[in-house]
Amino acid sequence: MTPFLNGFIITLLFLSGVYAAAVMERWSVTGHVNWGGPVRSFLLLFAREEIKTRKHDKVFFETAPILFIGVILLTISILPFAPGSVIIDLGTGALFINAALVYVMVALLMMGWAINGVYAMIGGWRAIAQLIAYSMPVVMVLTATVMRAESMFLTDIVESQKGLWNILYQPVGFILFYISALAIAFLPPFDLPTAGGELAGGVWADLTGARKLLFRLGRLTLVFTVSAAVVVLYLGGWMGPWLPDFVWTFLKTLLVAASFFAVGRFMPRIRHDHLLEYNWKYGVPLALYNIFQVGVVLLL
């Protein structure tokens, strides 16, 4: 297979993965599978007027949606779908995931602030709370996967799981990363910045048209991205019998995304003080334990 064809298929799979995430998201909200739904809501946003709120912060208002979708696209482009099929193979891969995804929350704060409305502003500050809560455990568990691979290349991290996937090698890390991934993608039960029943849409409630579209698309891509990150870091990436390697990555990613939405549907929204408290009281110590455990096992 030529690299070109490979790239084409992967792009296609990627797009269909995002679409599948859109369908699943709709399911998690309405409880019904509606294959055409996401297209229609996409077109609805197209047909809509653009509304800019009064006295908005112009710089933030314009940059936040672009920053949001931009960092997410950058992140997905460093995740390997198959050996050799990675758009950008960064030497700092693992670090980059963490660094780039921080901007998701920053973009949310920028948007929440820019709108100049109370609901959005509260949503924006909640986004930062969420960042402060999840980022320490995320960084620490990422370090543990790097320790095992002795490299920050994501392809190396996948290769390092050849004998035993990280989900079994460092289960504590997996659990922490899985939960944090939900929080990164601000999916329910961690949808604090956009909380429907509380802030009536929060950060993005007042966006219409193109900017809303960018946020919605970005979020769907983000879900796909963090799912793929879980797969790459813990579920052995492309490894699997019989099927071509990128298919494995794709299937695993969809499965993880589906589980994200399922968790969100059946859980009540977490309180942001609980989120902070649990992450710092239990998440951080557990993540440190995880590093320690991996460190000891590696030296044995």
């Binding site: 100049n116 409305g117 109370v118 609901y119 709370a129 409630a205």
Partner: peptide, 21 residues
């Protein structure tokens, strides 16, 4: 004007926000 569940909020919302965390 940003929507506030049916209420008109013409005044800007920016303020010295108390970040409780």
């Amino acid at each position: 004007i940003p929507a506030e569940s049916g209420n008109l909020a013409p005044k800007p919302a920016w303020l010295r926000y108390h970040v409780h965390y």
